[in-house]
């Protein structure tokens, strides 16, 4: 079965990103396909590589990055939501006249059309949020 996942809350304050991660991993381990993970609302905050959690805690962002690298999962951060919250890749930073970018490995920034597309082509779109 083809799944897509939507993450609507940021890391650490809310379990949505943790649950979405465990769900995505379980889907892959069960042999299903994950077409895309889409980060929206405060969920875009899962895509900053500047996250520095205490060493005795999980690294939510790094976990997603590892999943993207290991399983070629498409992690997409919504551009409009990202602009509001200060998440940028090199292109976005340049386009908006910012002096830094912070996107984490394995994430890419794109538009809301990617979410609609995920809803259309996937057998299930599973949303994690409040």
């Amino acid at each position: 079965m083809k799944f897509s996942v939507m993450v609507n809350e940021g890391p650490y304050n809310h379990q949505a990103s943790d649950s979405a991660y465990h769900f995505t991993k379980a889907v892959l381990q069960a042999g299903h396909e994950v077409f895309r993970v889409f980060f929206y609302h405060d969920g875009v905050n899962n895509g900053t590589r500047l996250t520095t959690p205490p060493q005795d805690d999980r690294n939510v962002v790094a976990r997603w990055s590892e999943l993207a690298v290991e399983h070629k999962v498409d992690l997409v951060v919504c551009v409009a939501a990202a602009q509001r919250r200060g998440i940028a890749d090199a292109d976005e930073a340049k386009r908006n006249g910012k002096n830094a970018d912070n996107i984490a490995e394995g994430f890419r920034i794109s538009g809301l059309g990617q979410l609609i597309e995920a809803g259309i082509v996937s057998d299930r779109l599973v949303e994690f949020g409040d």
Binding site: Y40, H41, A80, G111, L112, I116, E117, I120
Partner: peptide
Amino acid sequence: TGYALEGLEVVLIGTAFEQ
């Protein structure tokens, strides 16, 4: 909260997909 405004943005973008 921002959910309503950003939700409405999804609806508007979604119209381009003719679902």
